[in-house]
Computed example of a mutant assay.
Amino acid sequence: MTALGDLIEIDDRTVLALGQELRIEHDQPDVANALLHRVGDTLVIVDTGVTTAFRTVLRAAANRLMPWSRALLLTTHGHPDHVGNNDLADELGVPAEHYVPAPDLDQMRDPASYWVRSLDRVAGLAPLPAPSALADKIVEICQPMRPFCATTRTYEERPLERIRIGSLRFTGWTFADGTVRVLRTQGHCAGHVIVHLSDCGVLHLSDEGNGACGAMADADQLKIQTVLGAVAVLFEEKEALHLTDGHTFAVRHGPAVVAYLESLMEQAAALQTAALRLTTESPRVRPSAFTSRFEQTLADLGIGGANPNAVFTAMMAVNQLRELGLRPESGGADAPWSRPALENPTPGEIR
């Protein structure tokens, strides 16, 4: 049993600080895991979670990895559970740099609007509060929220690099003489990156492995599954040795990682196959009915993902409908979804 703030030592220069699950009904925010690593005289911090309690954990973990005389804070994406303590970089007493993904700046500035946009899609599909009320609640429990510091810049202000790791090629940015590699993946949300620490063999997947189907409005299912396959190759080629992420409170090692990643990809295929069956029983699908049966499908397949709850399940269900090619017939709450008619346009009508 793990608890908020437990530390897993990967080696004498690398620790994973464990967060906690989301429990909205108990006013408990989810807190993302944070990875801390010392390379040379630089302290690398990947994500900072949220809450004052976790901030104390980060300081203790940073002190544990001393000596260091500079700091590099890397934000994997802009969700509140990953960015709340980012201004910690201002308090470390050493020169610091902080980088965030440019596509996530808007949600970092205004997280409530981002969550309203995500939750509007599932209004009426599950017994949930109104989107604006639920968005306000998520932001309320993720406090204090300090996603920026004096040195914050976007990764995109740096020249984009072509990064080769083993047989694979990525784009992204390197730091600390190339030992810290930030790789663009953009599956879990629009700006998402993952981090590879080549000197210790750690690959931090952050939230790309949260489940078989991404929940957020800006999630990209293809990118999620593509990055899982690519990361599996890195472990097969021994370019990475230890896998960490944002919300499973463990470190995975060696060959076990490949089996784990393949299981996530198998779950994605099984889930879409099951969802396809649910949408072919009738030409029109009510999202509320689909969401209820989709939730049962998740249980039958034993697929939960990180932080399973009714909110994310409903968002996953809507994403799955879109993935299968269905579209809402109107803008009404719980309006039927169906496949657009395929008709050959007459000459001159193509637009």
Rank of each mutant, 00 (worst) to 15 (best):
P308E: 03
Q320M: 15
S330G: 09
N307P: 06
R327A: 15
N307F: 15
G332Y: 01
S330V: 02
T313C: 13
N309G: 14
P340Q: 09
A306M: 14
G325K: 08
N309V: 09
P308R: 01
W337R: 03
A310K: 11
A335N: 05
A317M: 05
G331P: 06
E323R: 14
V311I: 15
N319S: 09
R327T: 15
P308G: 02
N319M: 05
L326C: 07
E329R: 12
G325A: 06
P336L: 09
T313G: 10
L321H: 02
R327L: 12
P340E: 09
S338T: 11
M315G: 05
L326S: 04
D334E: 08
F312K: 15
L321A: 02
N307G: 07
F312G: 10
L321M: 04
M316E: 12
S330R: 07
I303A: 06
D334Q: 06
S338M: 09
R327M: 12
N307R: 12
I303L: 07
R339A: 13
V311P: 00
S330P: 05
G304D: 11
P328L: 03
A306T: 15
P328K: 07
A306F: 02
M315N: 06
M315W: 08
A310D: 12
T313H: 12
N309D: 13
A306R: 10
A333C: 08
I303N: 07
E329D: 11
A317W: 00
F312I: 10
G331V: 01
L324K: 01
Q320G: 00
R339I: 15
S338V: 00
P328D: 09
A306L: 04
A333E: 14
M315H: 09
P328E: 08
G331Q: 11
G332N: 11
T313E: 09
V318L: 09
E329S: 11
M316Y: 00
A310L: 14
Q320E: 12
A314R: 05
A314L: 02
P336N: 09
A306K: 11
N307M: 06
P340I: 11
I303V: 11
V311E: 00
M315V: 02
A335D: 08
G304W: 06
I303D: 06
I303S: 07
A317P: 04
N309T: 07
G305E: 00
A314C: 05
P340C: 08
G304P: 10
Q320R: 12
V318P: 03
F312M: 10
R322Q: 13
L326D: 08
E329Q: 15
N307V: 11
G304S: 13
L324N: 01
G325P: 06
T313A: 13
E323W: 10
A333K: 10
D334Y: 02
V311H: 03
P328M: 04
N319G: 11
G332Q: 13
A335M: 01
R322P: 00
P336K: 09
L321Q: 02
G332I: 01
N319C: 09
R327N: 05
R339M: 13
G331C: 03
L321G: 00
A314G: 07
A310Q: 12
E329V: 10
S338R: 14
A335V: 02
G304L: 10
A333Y: 03
R322G: 11
